[in-house]
Computed example of a mutant assay.
Amino acid sequence: MGKIAFVFPGQGAQYVGMGKAFAEQSESAKAVFERAGKSLDLDMSALCFDSSEEALQKTENTQPSILTVSYAIYTAVKEKLGLEADAFAGLSLGEYTALVAAEAMNFEDAVRIVRKRGQYMQEEVPVGKGGMAALLGVERDDVLKVCEEASVFGICEPANFNCPKQVVVAGEIDAVKQAIEISKRYGAKKAVLLPVSAPFHTSMLLGAGEKLRQEMLKYSFKPAVHPVYSNVTGDRLDPETDVRENLVKQVFNSVLWEDCVASMVRDGITTFIEVGPGNALTKFIRKIDKDVQVYNVENPEDLEVLAEKLKTGGGNADV
Rank of each mutant, 00 (worst) to 15 (best):
K3G: 14
K3T: 11
F6R: 07
M18L: 08
F33V: 09
E34F: 00
S39V: 06
L40I: 11
D43F: 10
S45Q: 10
C48G: 08
E54Q: 04
L56M: 05
K58R: 09
P64L: 06
Y71E: 11
Y71P: 06
A72H: 10
I73H: 08
V77N: 13
G82D: 09
G94D: 05
E95P: 05
Y96A: 13
A98R: 04
L99T: 03
A102Y: 07
A104L: 14
A110T: 11
R112N: 15
G118A: 12
Q119A: 06
Y120C: 09
V127Q: 10
E148V: 10
E148C: 06
C156R: 12
F161N: 08
G171A: 14
D174Q: 11
V176T: 12
A179L: 10
I180P: 05
A188M: 01
V192E: 12
H201T: 05
K211E: 12
Q214V: 09
L217R: 14
K222I: 02
V228S: 04
Y229A: 09
T233Y: 13
G234V: 03
N246D: 10
N246G: 05
N246S: 13
E258L: 04
D259I: 06
T270D: 11
V275H: 08
P277Q: 08
T282Y: 15
K283G: 14
K283D: 09
I288E: 13
D291G: 03
V292T: 14
N296A: 13
D302K: 11
V305P: 00
K309L: 06
K309Q: 02
K311G: 12
G313S: 11
V319G: 01
